[in-house]
Each structure stands twice: as structure tokens, then as C-alpha cells.
Design a protein around this nucleic acid. Structure first.
Lengths: 195, 195, 195, 195
DNA sequence: GATGAATGAGCATTCATTCAT
DNA sequence: CATGAATGAATGCTCATTCAT
């Protein structure tokens, strides 16, 4: 009679994304998530170990999906340039379509609580590795030039992150899509990408 | 008589920096700051309106000092390239010398609590404007090429931020100074800086 | 299901009456009420907005009941004399049976906190109006003589209040019932009541 | 050089009267009294044992003065009627001239805190005895008729108290002096006073 | 005597989590 | 499985009182 298990799980995660985005992790009560998800407070605990587990699961799930999508886009590209451009585009578009997720990512990425940090680092690291792989391959093929792989990734991700951060904070943000080309061009320059 | 007052104020701010860095703003109790500062809980409230005011004051004070220092370095530079290199160097070194501040900055920069956000945005915006000024001047003098000032700043700051973020999270970080040159080189490329 | 809810609500109100009576509103902690009511501290806040709300609710509930009872007695009386005597008797007996309420009334009636005062004034004013109605009707029918309705009510209520005040303070009080007749006689004289 | 001891003592008591009247005993901080008295917080404790001692001293001092004044008026009266009228008049006028004291009296008379209560009861009891003496003498001389001395006093004091209570609460109170005659007349009736 | 900065015990209130229904 | 009333530990902040100057 009731919603299947999977559906309710997603409903809670969606609600949590909204709620965390609006109030922040600490200022958002579990009861608020429950209400938003249309379930009882106690029900949350049938699906998640505790509040932190909601955040962690949310992050793992969404980031996994995100990385998946990026990975999918990349394989269709021929050159490193295309791959980087593709990541930029997918990243921006994904976040633009999932504003609450973007906010949560911005906020909770930096929790200093060691437990949360640890739990969150996994999915993020996976994305980092993906970027670094593309960069490494580009260097091998001499399509780009970077003196330090990690720093290259930091520039790549940090820039995207800053763009989204501003967009998230801004009350009347211009569309992220608008900056795609500028961004790609800038990054291309940083990596001395050959045409 | 105002000497000990000033001293105690700084002691509390220092303690708060440490404590916020270690536990995060929300997970850090006022009593923990008090103990670390070597004062009674109540004493805190002789110097700060409330817990949030500690964070805000801390941020305003430290970021103000930071921007000041950067500004001071910049004026001694001739070219835009030098100016950008100078900011990178000062930024990294300042954070390396103030690891706790770096952590707090990383964490609290992204608080979604609107009040905190608002209070914090001032000092940060000032730094952003400083960067954008340098970039604007560079474009005017045709020392660099950027299609969008804001995106340029986002790349510049975002990259530095990501570098520090990794450094902060890392258990055994390599010195930030080590990456200075790579970083400067990368940014130079992004902005097509002429030698 | 709403049965236990109602029960717990009353239990808290009863406990609060006892506790406020014994310690006074300000010197009585919420936790003391909770313990006395046999519930957890937090449970209090499922039923009341805050500590002040307990006091206000308590007052509204009990005084409403009290006025109700008085009103019920009055309608059965023929003459103003009987009505006044009835109020005196009911007032004294009600307070004698609800000593804690009597104490709370004595104490909190005079809180200078404007908020509390305002909240409390409603039910009390209702009682005052009841008295004044009886007096007004008595004057119309020429059963009593009063030059000023308000002062008449003040004498009536003030006297009862003083009697109860003494009784409340006294360690070994004589029964309030004992003074009924004397009191009625005295008031009758003040109002020049005709037999 | 500094104010003589006595003057500062009075200043604190005056300040306390104002402050207690405005905020109530519990909601009034010692520091507020100090500021109002123009002394440092610590100075208070050179003159009073603690906060409660301020209230108690205030009450003892002011009520003593009050009773004194009443006593002084009474001796000049010939008949019981005159004496009662004199008390009514003096009581009302004294309170009208000392509104803050009137408020404090209204409020703090009923503190349930046993300690405060005990300390306050002394001066008040003295006034009660004064009234009862007048009544007793009146009965002896057959100038009035009362079946119970205590109840007589309760009517007398309670009525005055209620009048003042209303006056204190009222935002636009009519002068207390206006009700004098009505009041005296009413009380005269209660006691079957002979002309 | 006078000061007022410092103290720290004390308390109302919140909210993640549990568990009887 | 689902509920939501109940729990009680946890914490920011206040303020009477002290005491070094």
C-alpha cells in the first residue's frame, strides 16, 4: 500500500537536500526534513542511522551520480581539450539544475567535523581522480602542459568551485552556462592547451 | 588599564580561532573557547555580544589584517605579473603561518546561515575587489588578457582556495611555499600574461 | 488517544501550581515542575510555549473555572444580599480547597512584568466585572447603596483578597469558612444592605 | 570628599525603589540599581548584604516611615471615625506621592520566597497592629461595631490595598484623593460607625 | 571606601533519538 | 513498516557577587 522502500528513501534524501541547502546542516532539524519528505520523524531512522548519515548518504549518492555522468560524457571525447571542456560544461549544468545540491556541496564540503569530513571525502576524491586522470593523459599525449598534476587539478576544480560559490550566494545570478566559454578558454590558457 | 583589556580580547579571538578550526563553529562550545583563552565563560560576553559575534569579529579582524598585508605588498610591484605573483605568495604564506585561520576561513566561508554569511561577506568582498582591481589594471595596460573580470577573479581566488583546502585537509601537507611557482606559472598562462 | 494528552496537560498544570506556590514563579525551575509532574523537562514544551505560558495558562484555566463556578452560584440567588454572600462563600471555599492556587493568585497577581501582567489581567478582570454587575444590579433595585461602583468592587474584592492573603501566609490558619459570616456581615454594612 | 555614607545609602534605596517598581524584583539586575544610583556595582555590597537585603531594607525603611507618619496623624484625632478617616487619607496620599514605593509594596508584599516574606512581614505587621489598635479602641468606646478585629483590619487594609493596586496598574489613573470620601464612607458603613 | 572587570553557578530551551502503539 | 509523543543530555547566556587595584 505504502510507497515502496526505495521511493521513501529518495524522498528523504531530496527533502534533506532542500533543507540542508536552506538552513545549513546544523541549523536544520531532522523534523524539518521529515515534514518536507512527508514522513514521520521516526521514519527517518528506519532509513538512516542518524542525522549525519543523511548528509553522508546524500553526498555519496549525488556525487556518485554526478561523477558517473561526467565519466559518461568524457568517453565520447577525442582530445583532452574536449574532455576538459566537457567536464566544465557538465559540472556547471549539473549544479545549475541541482541548485540545492550545489549549495549543500559548497557548504558541507568544508565541515571541519572530522567524521563528516572523512565520510564526504570519498566521493569527492573520486571526482578529483577523474580530473587528474584526464590531465595526466593530456600531458602524456602532449596536448597540455602542467608542471604539477595536483596543482592542475586544484586550479581546475577550484575555479569551478569558486564560480558556483558565487552563483550560489548571488541573489540574482546570471546563468552558469553563460560563463562556460570564458571558463574553458581561461583553463585552456592555464594548461597551454594546443588547438 | 586598557592594556589587559586589549590582551584579553586577543586571547579570546586566538582561542576561538583554534577552537573553531578544530571543532567547527557549531560543534565548538563557548566554554571550550573560554577554557582555551584562560578566562571564565562569562568573560567572553564582556568582549563579544554572543557566539556568532566572536566568529564575525574574528573574521573581520583577521581578514582585514590579511587584505592590508596584501595591499602593502602590491604597491611595491611594477607589473601586473609581479602583482599577481605577490598576491599568490602572500596569500599562501599568510595561511601557512595561520593554519587555524586558514581552516576557519575554509569552513566558515560557506556557512549557509544567512546572518553569518552576511557578516562575513564584507571582508571577503574587499579581497575580491582587490584582486579584480589588479586584473582590471592589467587588462588596461594590456599586460594580461581576460574576457571576463569576475571569472578571472574566480579562477585566481578559487585556485588558491582549493590549494589551501587540500593543504588544510591533508594530514601531512607539503609546504604551501613549494607550489608557489607552479601556481604562478599556471595562472600566468590562464591570463596570457606577457613576460 | 487524546485522553493521555489531556491528562498530561493537567498533570503539568497541577505540578506548576504546587511548585509556583511553594517557590514562587521566578525561583521555581521548569525542571522542578517536570519532576513533580512526572514528565521529562522537554515534555513541558510539547504542551506549553515557555515557562511564562505555563503560568498564564494556569491562571486562565483556573480562574475561568473559578468565575464559572461563581457565576453558577449567583443565578440561583434572589436578592443582591444573597448574591454577595454567595460570592463570598464560594470564593473562600474555592481558595480553601485550592490552597496552592490561592497562593499563586496572591503572588502572581502582582507581578510587575508587563507581559505576565497583561496575560493575567483578562481572567481577573472578568471576575471584577462579575462583582460589579452584581453591585450595579443591587443599586438599581435599591437593595444596596454605593456611591462608586468601582470602589465598591475594590472593597469587596480587596477584603476577600486580604483575608486569603493572611490565611495563606499563616502557618496555622483558622478555616476560612469560619470567617464567612463575619465577612458577609461587614460587607453588608458597607453597602448598607437592606434585610 | 565623597558623599557621606548616609547619602549614598539613601541613593541606592531610592534607585532600588524605582528599579524594582519598573522591572520587578527578579527582573531587575543589581547593576541597574547601581547605574541608577550613580555608583559602581560593587559599591552596593558595601551597604547591603545582597540583593534581597536591598529589598528588605527598602521595605523596612519606607514602611517604618509610613507607619510613623500615620501614627503621627492619629494622635491628633478625637474619635475613631476621625482616626480611620485619617489613616485612609494618609495612606492614599503617601502612596500617591510615592508611586514607585506603592508598586513595590503591591508586588513584593506577596513574594512567596519564604525568606523575603519573613523579612517583610515585620514592618507590615506593625501597620496591621496599628489599625487593629484603632479598631479595638473604637469598639471599646462603642464608636464602631466589629465582630472580629482581624477581619475588620483585613477589610480596612484590603480595601485600601485594592484601591492602590488598581491605581498602580491603571495607565490613566484618577487621583487617589478623589476616592477618599467614598472610601471613608464605605468603611464607616462596614463598621457601623456612629456619627 | 570605591571601583568595575571577572567569575562561574544556574537555567530555560532545543532537538536528535527512541520506542510503545 | 510507520508513527510521533516523550525523552533528557547538552549549551548559550545571564547576573549576583567578589576582589585586586
Amino acid at each position: 500500500m505504502s510507497k515502496p522502500r526505495e521511493e521513501k528513501y529518495k524522498a528523504i534524501l531530496d527533502a534533506a537536500t532542500e533543507a540542508f541547502a536552506e538552513y545549513g546542516y546544523f541549523s536544520c532539524q531532522v523534523s524539518k526534513i521529515a515534514k518536507l519528505a512527508g514522513v514521520a520523524d521516526g521514519t527517518i531512522y528506519l532509513y538512516f542511522k542518524n542525522k549525519q548519515d543523511i548528509l553522508v548518504s546524500l553526498f555519496a549518492e549525488r556525487m556518485g551520480q554526478f561523477t558517473q555522468e561526467i565519466r559518461h560524457e568524457i568517453v565520447q571525447c577525442r582530445t583532452t581539450q574536449q574532455r576538459l571542456a566537457s567536464i566544465v560544461r557538465t559540472h556547471l549544468r549539473y549544479m545549475e539544475e541541482n541548485r540545492s545540491l550545489a549549495i549543500v556541496t559548497q557548504i558541507e564540503l568544508r565541515q571541519s567535523d572530522p567524521q563528516i569530513r572523512e565520510a564526504i571525502s570519498g566521493p569527492l576524491r573520486e571526482y578529483f581522480q577523474l580530473i587528474e586522470q584526464v590531465l595526466a593523459e593530456g600531458m602524456e599525449k602532449e596536448e597540455i602542459v602542467i608542471r604539477d598534476l595536483k596543482v592542475g587539478r586544484q586550479l581546475f576544480f577550484g575555479t569551478l568551485d569558486a564560480v558556483i560559490s558565487d552563483w550560489v550566494i548571488s541573489k540574482k545570478p546570471r546563468s552558469l552556462v553563460e560563463v562556460e566559454d570564458v571558463l574553458i578558454d581561461l583553463i585552456r590558457g592555464a594548461f597551454r592547451a594546443k588547438n
